[in-house]
Design a protein around this nucleic acid. Sequence first.
DNA 1: GCGATCAGCT
DNA 2: CACAGCTGATCGC
Length: 442
Amino acid sequence: MEKGMISVDQWSEGSQAYFLTHLHADHTKGLSSKWNKGPLFCSPITAKLFPAKFPGFKFSLLRVLEIGSSHTLSLASPSTGLEAMVQVTPIDAHHCPGAVMYLFRGELGCMLYTGDFRWEATSARAELGKTMLRNALGGDRVDFLYLDNTYCNPSYSFPPREVVAQQVVDIIASHPDHDIIIGIDTLGKEDLLLHISRALRIKIWVWPERLQTMHLLGFHNIFTTKTSLTRVRAVPRYSFSVDTLEGLNTMRPTIGIMPSGLPWVVRPLEENCDSIGSSLPIWHHIGSKWRTNGVAHVDRSQPNEKSSSAQGFHRYIYSVMYSDHSCFGEIQEFIKFVQPSNMRGIVSSSSCYIDPLYYLGHLRGANQPHLQSGKKFQRRELDESVDPVQTKSVLGCSKYTEAKRKRERSVKVNCLSVHTNRVSVLRRVRRGAKIVEIDGLD
DNA sequence: GCGATCAGCT
DNA sequence: CACAGCTGATCGC
């Protein structure tokens, strides 16, 4: 797509239409309540959650698109000045509530932007997504696929979420006298909690703001902010730590469950022998173990036994491979299904970018870019504003790590800062309680 | 004083 | 390694 026409999850000036895939913070960076750059398209569920995240947002700029149905936009081609019709179809991305992929079709070509997505082969919901995508494509070939390449490496492999959800239920059921702490984010993993709640007929504690979100999503009488009603609590991931678990265990026996596509590894601390991680390539080692059942090896030995730290796990923590991103095999299946002429990853994190072409380039459709069919979607022709970020990460790896190392070297001076500014107070108030036991509204 | 951005941490 | 995100500090308006 030509520069200056559309932007997806990218909020700098200069596009005619903006598309939001989902409400996770890394996709809304740059969005604010004062938005005034143009119409912003999103899914119905995202629209429902939107005001809570961006109070005061000019609602007339929000355009809600029904999932699975096509909408036509009339845009001006910046180069020719002529009107160009673009048809857009949001498709369920099975990532978090409201998350969608966008399929763009028109005179300018056909482009699919996945956003973050999970492509499970098994569930009925996944089958529906497949049908929806097939219908939306209407036989067209995808010229350019923008792909969630988070786990685009053969070493990333994990079971479908249903399977892992049952494993979590089993873990909880096998600890009938324990309190349970589950680390979650501001959005996502609702299905896991629902499954636990249904299977064990138990309510689940969430922090007050998260309860509001649950209510907006239509879940009533399942979640609570009263700790007295349940032994299972879903807490913000950032408040989930070894210290937290150890602290809680001085009061009541408690285990922590961390659902993630990546192993939750105790960060190696040089002088803390109890929680030290192995210096071996931990995740690879663990990864091969997990392929068998998807649950981390959990050490049941006594606290002081050496083995409890050798694996990089903590005695109270279960790490389960519940991921809202596609694993490698699923990405592979997805590319086979879409058969794009060309593609590139949309996720380039701190230190690396996994190029889907490296492992999965051979799965593309017959019309490879060198045959010119992908011409309309050469990468600098999309929204250029997306590009610099990614190019920077691909090419600027060493630069970044150098900067990071510099940062690491700098000494933290202000250890005893008591000063609290207004911003942080407001932020904290907005966020609600962490794991403090607050009996709020229910 | 406020918002945006960075550094640090999980 | 890094899922996604909070917190505190700082800077410019």
